[in-house]
Computed example of a mutant assay.
Amino acid sequence: MSSSLEIKVKLFEQCYRFCQDRLKIVLSQIEDTNKALTTETKSSAGDKHETGRAMLQIEREKLGKQLAELEKQQEILSKIQTDKISINISLGSIVHTTQSNYFIAISAGKLQVNDVVFYGISSQTPIGKLLLGKTVGSEVEFNNLKFLIEKVS
């Protein structure tokens, strides 16, 4: 069985990889969109050309927003101290409850360490906001479900 700090490092690494993988995809899509914009040639149907360029511009703006969100997630990850365990739930905490296990970091979905499932959640999500500041023994109600915080590390 791994120590709490070893588990925290593994969860952090999974969140970091999640972020890096998404970043590679978005950067590749931005590059493809930029190439498409520069190679878009004027056709005999001028309106069709303008519509194509407008669609590519919209796609580029959407990708820019995704890139900004990923940069925020990287900034959040940079604030996590994997060598510290806190009593109160905060950024970087591992939270074991009677319902699920959580890693307070970024919204990375289902994570797994040693066959134990954790959910990577942002402290800005509704459940994340509920958990922040709580300690072992606290009872939390979310979506009409009550659960108890059993362990914080």
Rank of each mutant, 00 (worst) to 15 (best):
L11W: 07
T97R: 01
C19Y: 08
D32Y: 03
Q124H: 11
L56M: 10
V116D: 08
N88H: 13
K79S: 10
R17D: 15
G52S: 13
N114Q: 15
G64E: 02
T125V: 10
L70W: 09
V113Y: 03
S90A: 08
Q112W: 01
S2L: 15
R60C: 05
Q57D: 13
I25E: 13
K35I: 14
N88I: 00
T38P: 00
S123L: 08
D47S: 09
G128E: 03
M55K: 14
L70T: 07
K72C: 05
E13T: 10
L5D: 04
Q20C: 08
K84C: 00
K65D: 06
G133V: 05
I58V: 12
L130D: 06
F12M: 03
G52T: 11
L77Y: 06
I87D: 12
Q14F: 09
K42W: 03
K110T: 13
I76W: 03
F18T: 05
K42M: 11
M55L: 15
A68H: 14
S28C: 04
E31R: 12
L131R: 01
L132I: 08
S4K: 13
A45F: 08
S90I: 04
T33P: 09
E71P: 02
E50L: 13
I104E: 04
D21G: 02
F18R: 07
K110R: 15
H49Y: 15
L111F: 07
D115I: 09
Q112G: 07
L132T: 05
D115W: 02
L27K: 15
T125I: 03
A68M: 10
Q57V: 11
F103C: 03
E40P: 00
D21V: 11
K65Y: 09
Y16M: 10
K134Q: 07
Q20A: 12
Q124Y: 12
G46D: 13
Q29S: 14
Q14Y: 03
K35P: 01
D21E: 15
Q29A: 11
K129S: 01
E50V: 03
V117I: 15
R22C: 00
L37W: 05
D21H: 13
